[in-house]
Design a protein around this nucleic acid. Sequence first.
DNA 1: CGGGCGGCCTGGAGGC
DNA 2: TGCCTCCAGGCCGCCC
Length: 272
Amino acid sequence: MPELPEVETVKRQLKETIIGQKIQDFKLSGLRLRREIPSLSDLKNQTILNIFRRNKYLIIELNYNWLVIHLGMTGQLIFVDKIPLHKKHVHCILHFWGGHYLYYEDPRRFGSIDLYHKKDFSDYHQIPLFENLGFEPLEASFTFNKFNELFSKSKNIKSFLMDASFVCGIGNIYASEILFLSKISPKRDILDTSEPERKLLFQNIKNVLKKAIELGGSSISDFVHVNGQSGKMQNFYNVYGRNGLKCNCCNHLVEKINQNGRSTFFCPSCQK
DNA sequence: CGGGCGGCCTGGAGGC
DNA sequence: TGCCTCCAGGCCGCCC
């Protein structure tokens, strides 16, 4: 379940492994992901120049194109030196000159692979997918004052955290964790929060995401690193998946509720 | 117009 | 052992 920290982890690892690699060929499964995968024949003989992340999207910069990849819920990008013949859900393989491969595996096919021309979008920020996105939470330019200005109309606080048009990259897991550390109930409305609560929330958004990146993301369900190894953040959850267990801060049991069809985990004693 | 919810998918878990 | 149902959560489109 890749949220910002998992995608950032993959981005950093791709920077170490595929920058400078030149694409010789590609192969597609023929199955559609969220959308149809476009033909990648234009990418032959292009070199990978850089890797970026915006929200939960990876942006691979080539000589003439932006290749934009979303991991959906169960997507993996794996760098190997042999074609993955025995794998069931490989939908795209990039074959590099010199004999390495980057493959995209995604059982549930909730992800996406899109291709844009740099002549159409000289800066990847102009790509329509990124048009309505809010702040990147870990950028220094995202200050408390800018965050505080987002509290302009009534909205449930967990929905607010997960809404990328306000702040990008927070998914269901980290929303619960951020609210726990901020001692704010997920049932609250953002307009009912005090300034000290907002300051705490702002700091915890940055702190939780940073810690998760330092630990290489969360490997529950399918997420793994570019080399197949696991992240460690799942070992440090305070509330996510801990319903029925004792809260780490008090003796109350962690509860699980449903909000907008999603599970929310919280401690009703610590979070007011 | 905007908030909320269903659909897209598969695999794994749990019930009977 | 096998079949059924439910659940996982990102994102988009549709509906009210």
